[in-house]
């Protein structure tokens, strides 16, 4: 499996294609529903450097606080991406993100944003919270923990060999659109419905 280091350049990210299996190593940040809304409401100077040229992981982890005040990720799989469809392309282009990690794929607005600003959609295996938490080597810091709570906070994490698959690329291709179209065709056939 190919390894991809974070931060990553636009040029590197544009080389990735749907169907590529990749292991990510480096720094990324988590963010889900509350975080996406917050990032769009105004430009968040303090968080911006942690978004530039890396990826946002749509994840609401289970986190343990250690006696010394540090944190560990106990369970950390992806959440359903489509809820961030109204925000993701704007967050990506505004903060210079190079990609998203989530599950289930995203829609046309995000796909367009991936092409325009240079990014990919990485699919992590949904529910694989243990495998993915083990790839998180360190929790560097956290934003908005008090306000949003553990699942919704923005966690800055260092990962090593974090396994993902490219299912939407910067060349306009989406595996999700293809599978959905094929399954709809099959459904019509099973139900005997005309096109």
């Amino acid at each position: 499996m190919a390894e991809l280091k974070l931060p990553v350049s636009e040029e590197e990210i544009r080389k990735l294609r749907v169907g590529d299996a990749v292991e990510l190593t480096g720094r990324m940040i988590t963010g889900r529903d509350a975080a996406h809304k917050w990032l769009i409401e105004s430009f968040r100077e303090e968080v911006a450097p942690f978004l530039k040229d890396t990826v946002i992981y749509q994840c609401g982890p289970v986190v343990r606080k250690n006696p010394d005040g540090s944190y560990d990720f106990v369970a950390a799989g992806p959440t359903t991406s489509i809820r961030e469809e109204p925000y993701e392309a704007d967050v990506m282009c505004r903060y210079g993100l190079r990609g998203v990690i989530g599950k289930g794929g995203m829609g046309p607005k995000t796909l367009e944003g991936l092409g325009r600003c240079g990014g990919v959609y990485f699919h992590a295996v949904g529910g694989a919270a243990q495998v993915l938490a083990h790839a998180v080597k360190k929790v560097e810091r956290v934003f908005m923990l008090e306000e949003f709570g553990v699942p919704e906070a923005l966690w800055v994490i260092d990962v090593e060999k974090f396994p993902v698959m490219v299912t939407m690329d910067s060349h306009g291709r989406s595996l999700h659109d293809e599978v959905e179209a094929a399954s709809r065709e099959k459904l019509k056939e099973l139900l005997g419905l005309g096109a």
């Binding site: 994840c59 609401g60 982890p61 289970v62 106990v74 369970a75 950390a76 799989g77 959440t79 949904g126 529910g127 694989a128 919270a129 243990q130 938490a133 699942p151």
Partner: peptide, 9 residues
Amino acid sequence: QSSPICQDT
């Protein structure tokens, strides 16, 4: 490891 299979418990 007696840890949650999925983070969404």
